[in-house]
């Protein structure tokens, strides 16, 4: 039996990890995903008591709930599910489970990047759709319809330009969320306490340092260099090329950042000690 990957052993470990996730995070996830429905019900109750009639919730509120809920989940899920691994009691028990570091890393990545996100979307759209069907007048249109109208309103407008531009909106959201989740997962496996707050502080610190370095470069000839480069390459007259290069650069950036974060997470798991 391979000491790196064995399908049966990985299946057992992934099932164990999913059960553990459900025990530790299931209720929080459901609550976050059903937030618009819960808020709507509370609002209606107050409205009925105080005004004697039901009132509607504004346009775009559902989408706001979804974005806020997903961002919150991405921030707190890693520390809630895996934060205890830096503690001696839980961490040593977890390290001693007979599965390879690769299997533990793969399972952790799947849970955080796929299972949690898919479960959130599933519960959110189910709850939101149901509320929209039950209370079409006051709850308003479902988030799915809002997203669809957003597509037709803005993205189609971009597509209908002189040069059609296809934006992979779900892909952009997924990769953005994945980066967010992985950063907080790494934070959860490094910091012993206040994992989310410390990760945010590190991100703020890094942004400030990056900002200062970028400003320094731009002030000291960087801006002129870029301007010169753009003129030399004649980008302005070939918008198709600009789009292609932009796409390549963005894809490269995503691969490097996601790959780097996943590699970092793997080595953190492999070298965890108690």
């Amino acid at each position: 039996m391979s000491n790196i990957f064995n399908l049966k052993r990985f299946g057992n470990y992934f099932a164990y990890d999913c059960r553990r996730t459900w025990n530790l995070f299931g209720l929080i996830l459901i609550l976050a995903a059903l937030a618009p429905a819960v808020v709507f019900i509370i609002q209606q109750l107050f409205s009925l008591i105080l005004d004697g009639h039901m009132s509607g919730i504004g346009e775009g509120v559902h989408l706001g709930f979804m974005v806020f809920g997903a961002a919150t989940i991405a921030m707190i899920a890693p520390s809630t599910i895996y934060g205890s691994l830096t503690e001696k009691r839980s961490g040593s028990s977890w390290l001693m489970i007979p599965a390879s570091s690769f299997e533990k890393w793969l399972s952790m990545s799947l849970v955080l990047l796929v299972v949690i996100m898919a479960a959130f979307c599933l519960v959110f759209f189910a709850g939101d759709g149901l509320m929209s069907l039950l209370f079409p007048g006051t709850y308003g249109t479902s988030t799915a319809s809002e997203i669809s109208s957003f597509y037709s309103k803005y993205l189609n407008a971009i597509n209908s330009g002189e040069i059609p531009v296809t934006i992979n909106f779900p892909g952009l959201i997924f990769t953005g969320m994945a980066e967010w989740v992985l950063v907080f997962a790494i934070g959860a496996l490094y910091f012993k306490r206040s994992k989310v707050a410390k990760t945010i502080l590190v991100l703020i610190g890094l942004s400030i340092i990056t900002g200062i370095i970028t400003s320094f470069i731009m002030v000291n000839g960087g801006a002129d260099f870029i301007k010169d480069l753009v003129q030399r390459m004649d980008f302005i007259y070939e918008p198709r090329k600009v789009i292609t290069i932009f796409n390549v650069l963005m894809s490269l950036r995503t691969i490097i950042v996601l790959g780097g974060l996943l590699t970092w997470l793997f080595f953190r798991i492999k070298t965890l000690k108690h």
């Binding site: 039996m1 000491n3 025990n23």
Partner: peptide, 22 residues
């Protein structure tokens, strides 16, 4: 190296143990 084939043969019981919510 924490090879699964060896981990299957080992059990470590620390002085303090954590409860699982189940």
């Amino acid at each position: 190296k924490r090879e699964p084939s060896l981990l299957e043969k080992i059990y470590y019981l620390p002085d303090e143990v954590a409860p699982s919510p189940e």
